[in-house]
Amino acid sequence: MLHTLAVLVENNPGVLARVAGLFSRRGFNIDSLAVGRTDNSAISRMTIVVEGDDLILEQVTKQLHKLIDVIKISDITKDEYVDRELVLIKVNADAATRGEIMQIVDIFRAHIVDIGHKTLTIEATGDEGKINAIEQALRPFGIRELARTGKIAMLRGFKASSVNNNGKEDV
């Protein structure tokens, strides 16, 4: 089963290597990992999608907690959350296919962000299912290049997975 972990870490050099190294040497599988800083520039947030049963997840969480730079880990899988991924797709497009591609882009509420001589570059955001779907829809035209950010996620409603400025956890 896939679990989504929101991990807050100190924004120190090497922190990504520590987290990635931990996963590889303990044999845990990362499905996706996205990282960026939070509103507090000293703290970064990693969204890690990891595959495993409850036992593995327990170990992943406990081992992550042992890293000094890891401040907080929330497994938000079982809560209500919103998640988004961003994809850039460069697809072959000539005069004959351009119209059809633009229709697909409309259907997925995506955007065209660049036009080349024989290509269109499309930006789409959404959950994993939508991103997979637009990729499938564009594949017949010939995808020249594709870049996905990996998933970021956030709990719905008042609940938060964050720390305040004193380094103390919010409720």
């Binding site: 090497g14 290597a17 190294g21 931990l22 040497r25 000094i68």
Partner: peptide, 16 residues
């Protein structure tokens, strides 16, 4: 050495 010892230290520092 901080890279080499990553999996065998509780923590490490490269002082800047």
């Amino acid at each position: 050495i901080t890279g080499i010892t990553l999996p065998i230290t509780k923590h490490s520092y490269l002082v800047g």
